[in-house]
Design a protein around this nucleic acid. Structure first.
Length: 576
DNA sequence: GCCGTTTTCGGCCCGACTGTTTTCAGTCG
């Protein structure tokens, strides 16, 4: 059982206990453990073997025993007993907006509803209307919510959400009466996927601003609207929340709207220990007076902390680091001087090598590796050995034409085949300046098999980078079930760099893994996988992931000086 | 159920919005 399965098991327990009406703090304890497990960079099973389960935050004696039972036997008596009391399918009702644990219990006990289909049928036939606390409007909203669930497949990739959110922020900033506006929530934290879009703005005329917001041309539905907070749905299916505060409160407001929830909870705890109460409006003193903060830096300072970059506000140690003034020097766009993963018209790219190189130069890059697909990836027009040789000539020509402004490398994105062998023979790999090995096919192999496959690839002395390690595609395809600890050990031993692929549909490695790997001293590389010159700008998504992983410039080979990059490749070439 | 530079017991983050209430419960973030 992996972390994801453990995490969802404890989330299910929390949901069912909540519907059952259990003590809220017990429920919170299960939720906390569930969150913790999903954020864990190493496998809980390994901690379990080492007898270190209680090192997991939020896991105490009772939950550790349950993890133990799950890992030993694959099932959990406690949950089996619980589901005889509360049907497991009831947890699905909580996914419907407007339906929480109390309503779910109400529908179950009064109408015998135990799943989404039952709820939908009851809502359609007007059976919900008339139950205590449920009227006509609630029933209509629940029905709309169920229909929306069917339409929307969960979370939106950051790559879709961010450009649209920029449009909204630009519009907000142009409104009269708004002195500041930012995106907030998981958007601002650069998470790979986004639920709703969050915005925070500062204004002294909230009524006018709110009126303008809900009248924005692309708003098709107003879900809720007050004087300081509104929730809308746009014509593209995305939903957004806008919070309004006076400029004097903008610091606490933006802090609160940005989250994460776990980070906010920790900050409130710190306030509480100082006998203060932190809200999105102010810091309240015991005598009832309030202090206001117009920017985030000052509210962090009031709590004895340095300002924390949004990308790492996840309660993963950033608060401790901030208190001790040990926050990482996070990598920035200007640090990135090299791009090691792009495609040209030689395979499935849309632009020539020359065009790609010019676009790279315009963006200030000093090194560009041309890494077209290898032969077996037929769908992507992979290159044969002969074509590789001819491509080398073209790269040399373009290099001469463009001069010293940029250093072009000939590379390849070589397929790791199902048996773990690479798609080019060693002598062909040896002639390349840089080699990325990637999984594209047979991702569903069992954990041990797919892990062995990756290990055998990175043990090849010619391989320099493991590309988008898990092969996941957001939002449709889960990545391979790799044993990351083994992959990291292998990468460490062979000196192979692990990629954070910046393409919004990949964002792979994830932050927690990239952080873990970098912590072991494994070089990380952030690349766009661009198939078109414009796509070189996708680097911002990879950068976001790198920052979420706490990465500093020296840990990322794209930020190394050109000479260091070249000598790193040189050294690897010589089997070192 | 978890957790401890106030604590091994008694706490556990805060506020807005909505609908169905005539003073508040439920949901959400």
């Amino acid at each position: 059982m992996n972390n994801r399965e453990l995490s969802s098991t404890f989330k299910l327990i929390a949901d069912l206990l909540e519907i059952k009406g259990e003590n809220i703090y017990k429920i919170l304890a299960y939720r906390r453990a569930s969150e913790s497990l999903s954020n864990l960079p190493q496998e809980a099973a390994d901690l379990w073997k080492a007898g270190e389960l209680d090192n997991i935050p939020g896991v105490g004696k009772a939950i550790a025993e349950k993890i133990d039972e799950l890992l030993r036997s694959g099932h959990l008596g406690f949950l089996e007993k619980l589901t005889t009391e509360v049907p497991a399918s009831l947890a699905d009702l909580l996914r419907v907006p407007e339906v929480g644990p109390k309503k779910a219990a109400l529908f179950w006990k009064n109408l015998g509803i135990i799943d989404l289909a039952g709820l939908e049928a009851a809502a359609r036939t007007g059976k919900l209307n008339g139950l205590p606390g449920v009227g006509e409007k609630s029933e209509a909203r629940i029905l709309a919510g169920i229909e929306a669930l069917g339409r929307r497949s969960g979370r939106t990739p950051l790559g879709q959400a961010l450009p649209f959110a920029r449009e909204i922020v630009a519009w907000l900033r142009a409104q009269p009466g708004i002195s500041a506006a930012e995106m907030a929530g998981s958007l601002r934290r650069m998470k790979a996927t986004i639920g709703d879009l969050d915005f925070s703005a500062a204004t002294l005329t909230p009524d006018e601003v709110m009126e303008a917001f809900v009248s924005y041309p692309r708003v098709i539905r107003v879900i809720g609207r007050g004087s300081t907070k509104a929730s809308v749905e746009f014509d593209n299916g995305l939903r957004a929340q806008l919070w309004l505060h006076p400029p004097a409160e903008y610091g606490t407001a933006l802090l609160y709207a940005t989250g994460s929830k776990e980070h906010s909870v920790r900050l409130r705890e710190i306030a509480q220990k100082k006998d203060l109460s932190l809200s999105d409006h102010s810091l309240k003193h015991p005598d009832g007076t309030e202090s206001f903060y117009a920017d985030e830096t000052s509210i962090y300072a009031a709590l004895g902390l340095k300002w924390i970059p949004p990308e790492i506000r996840e309660d993963r140690g950033e608060i401790e680091a901030s208190r001790k003034d040990k926050l990482p020097n996070l990598i920035e766009r200007k640090d990135l001087l090299a791009e090691f993963h792009i495609h040209s018209t030689w395979s499935d790219g849309q632009a020539s090598i020359r065009k790609m190189a010019e676009a790279a130069m315009q963006r200030g890059l000093k090194v560009l590796a041309i890494t077209d697909h290898s032969a077996s990836l037929g769908v992507a027009g992979g290159l044969s050995i002969d074509e590789l040789a001819r491509q080398r000539e073209e790269i040399d020509t373009v290099q001469k034409e463009l001069g010293d402004g940029i250093r072009l490398l000939q590379g390849a994105e070589v397929e790791i085949k199902a048996d773990g062998s690479l798609d080019y023979p060693d002598d062909a790999l040896e002639r390349l300046d840089i080699v990325i090995a990637s999984l594209h096919t047979s991702l569903r192999q069992p954990r041990e098999q797919v892990t062995r496959r990756v290990l055998s690839a990175i043990q090849n002395p010619h391989v320099d980078i493991l590309g988008h390690p898990t092969g996941r595609l957001i939002p449709d395809r889960e990545g391979a079930d790799l044993d990351m600890d083994e992959v990291f050990k292998g990468a460490k031993a062979s000196g192979v760099a692990l990629e954070i692929n910046a393409h919004p549909s990949r964002m792979d490695l994830e932050d927690i893994y990239a952080r873990q790997a970098a912590g072991m001293g494994i070089p990380i590389t952030v690349n766009t996988d661009a198939h078109h010159p414009d796509q070189l700008d996708l680097i911002e998504y990879g950068l976001g992931m790198a920052r979420r992983a706490w990465l500093e410039p020296q840990q990322v080979i794209n930020a190394w000086p050109v000479q260091k990059i070249l000598s790193w490749l040189e050294k690897r070439e010589n089997g070192n």
